[in-house]
Design a binder for these strands. Sequence first.
DNA 1: CGGCACCATGCAAGCGCTATCACATAGAAC
DNA 2: GTTCTATGTGATAGCGCTTGCATGGTGCCG
Lengths: 341, 341
Amino acid sequence: MRAAKCKRMNEPSTRNPTLDDVAALASVSTATVSRYLNNPKVVAAATAERIREAIAQTGYIPNMLAGGLASSKSKMVSVLIPHLTDSIFNDTIQTMAEELAGAGTTVMMGLTGVAPERTDEMILAAMGRRVDAIISTAPLGPQTRELVERFPGLFIQIWELPENPPGIAVGFSHRDVGRDVARFLQSRGYRRPLLVTAEGTRARIRSDGFIEEWQALGGGEVAQAQVDIPSRFGHARRIFADMRRMAELPDVVVCGSDYLAQGLIVEAQAAGLRVPDQLAVMGFGNSALAGAMRPTITTVDIDGSRIAREAIAAIRHHATGAPPLARSIDVGFRLIERESA
Amino acid sequence: MRAAKCKRMNEPSTRNPTLDDVAALASVSTATVSRYLNNPKVVAAATAERIREAIAQTGYIPNMLAGGLASSKSKMVSVLIPHLTDSIFNDTIQTMAEELAGAGTTVMMGLTGVAPERTDEMILAAMGRRVDAIISTAPLGPQTRELVERFPGLFIQIWELPENPPGIAVGFSHRDVGRDVARFLQSRGYRRPLLVTAEGTRARIRSDGFIEEWQALGGGEVAQAQVDIPSRFGHARRIFADMRRMAELPDVVVCGSDYLAQGLIVEAQAAGLRVPDQLAVMGFGNSALAGAMRPTITTVDIDGSRIAREAIAAIRHHATGAPPLARSIDVGFRLIERESA
DNA sequence: CGGCACCATGCAAGCGCTATCACATAGAAC
DNA sequence: GTTCTATGTGATAGCGCTTGCATGGTGCCG
């Protein structure tokens, strides 16, 4: 109705220019302009030039809402992460957003927090926007799973490799991480590990993998402590204080993130303990700070950017209509030996 | 054409249910269902109940692309930030995303990086999606500004208060921050400050404010060092190494972020310097780590969540069609005295 | 020089909603 | 009983784009 009003008042400058305006100015049909926009090489060079000029002159900005409705391709992907601060996913998200932006696709951010129903809400919102893909870091409950099953786009679960993912998964085995860390620490001669675990499925699996291997290798009891999600710097104070009250101090603390590891190093040093001699610390994620900390932090490197790139490749592949090449893409991990353990 | 095919093949289960399906099942018109969805209380209770059931039965998920096209309200806002890692904006973004999600609005994330043309691209993308608001942390160049002037939604510049913002601004005076920090440090008896500045407009303004006041108060020359954007933990090594080569060591380092401040503390301590006795350090932003670090970091608190909430309030207000209440909302700042300086 | 393939373009029917307007019904006021 | 206001609902014209099909023009082969 706004257009109608403007037409009546003969005042086209008020409204945004549309495809029609461009088409009229370039003396072609809207179909041709649309084709030019989506696939420039199918229109003749001379026509393309006229259209280009018309676009510049009108200042036309394509309405992607309309485009998405017509094509049922929104060129949006939804990225679901628990939170933003001290998040080990940030590299992944950043790479994702940057690479997608180049292709004209934008990222819709969904912060799921820790409540599972928030995840459902965000998925619903994404589906309502008809996103091309949903990329989720959250483990899925049964109800969410049901929802995802109805999602016509591509569902990508990242940072883990569930048995039987809905859609596809790009990640690595958390259990193997736990196992390798156990082996490494035992080979280094540590005997009394403390596992600091955030209460989440993935951290749990790493812990299980660790404990299983640790004991298989003849290690004794494994002490554990819980932190809230996310596993961040500030939690270190409490963990360290609790630790000092233990009958026997651990000789190495295995943390759920580099941020927490950094916090523990700071606490230990403030208490006059030498790291790693008197207390060793291991991180997880190999975020930028791990290499920059003093002492540098021994950690597990996860290539977050690669996860993003694999996810994007899968989205592109999916867009061609072909069936997925793989249901599960393992990007692996690398134990990075540094100074702290 | 997909719907057509399905109708022909009498196979409605293939496609997503639409408003029509719901309307038919509830024996009302699509208009009524639409009304129910957008403003439940305008439909009669009994009708509402029938519609509710029909929605549940069909598993209908509103197509917001279509809705947005028809109403030219997309219920999306674009948030433009430079990057995600070690970002002082994360609290703001997080609060924004969380509060908006409750209102059914989603956040479209735009990572502008440091190249100004990326900002333009992201703004164009946002305008193409007909977002209701663009919230930007980036200072605007002349070209971007021109673009923004054509944006029909609400443009909100956050974390700064330019003279004459296009749209509205929610932030604080960086110059005043610099000034207050100068006063504070001088009152504490520091004499040889080193300003570590990221090469960005805002940091520049803080520095200018600092230097001006510092010298007005009779302080001498102010040493400066540059870091890349973002001002992060890992930069500390180089800064500290450079610092040690200075003829006279500074007695306090003023950092552009708490992350960098933390890094400098770590470096100083690793070099055997006591903080703050031998080297004091000031941060900026009062992120969670500032209070958790050892020593705790003296910093400037910016209430990022409040910035988000003010921005959202402005968006809501704008949605009613009323003119903005204020062009510029100053959320202020607070100097937090802790142990590091 | 007719026939055919092919390329570039136009036509027009949607995509799934919203919003305007008109209308029907029901009570309230007189 | 008539008029008036409220209230709830239906019909329908778009919103600005995409895309299948139809069409007209060009070059190439036999």
